[in-house]
Simulated scan of single mutants.
Amino acid sequence: MAKPQTIATRKYEAKAGWVSKSYKLKKDVVEAYADACAKVGVSAAGQLTKMMQGFIAEVEKTE
Rank of each mutant, 00 (worst) to 15 (best):
3 K>V: 02
3 K>N: 09
39 K>Q: 14
63 E>C: 04
19 V>T: 11
29 V>H: 12
5 Q>G: 11
11 K>L: 10
21 K>A: 06
20 S>E: 14
34 A>C: 09
27 K>F: 13
58 E>T: 09
48 L>P: 01
14 A>N: 11
17 G>H: 00
4 P>Q: 00
48 L>M: 07
12 Y>I: 12
28 D>Y: 06
40 V>I: 01
9 T>R: 07
46 G>Q: 03
2 A>Y: 00
23 Y>S: 07
12 Y>K: 13
54 G>A: 06
36 A>E: 03
49 T>I: 03
12 Y>T: 12
16 A>T: 02
58 E>K: 04
59 V>Q: 10
22 S>A: 10
52 M>G: 08
8 A>M: 05
30 V>M: 07
32 A>V: 11
23 Y>D: 05
10 R>H: 06
5 Q>A: 10
56 I>D: 11
42 V>C: 00
6 T>P: 03
1 M>T: 11
7 I>W: 05
63 E>V: 10
18 W>M: 04
56 I>S: 06
37 C>P: 04
43 S>W: 06
27 K>M: 13
51 M>W: 13
1 M>P: 10
29 V>S: 12
16 A>F: 06
21 K>W: 04
24 K>N: 11
3 K>A: 10
38 A>T: 08
33 Y>A: 10
18 W>S: 04
36 A>L: 02
29 V>N: 13
12 Y>N: 14
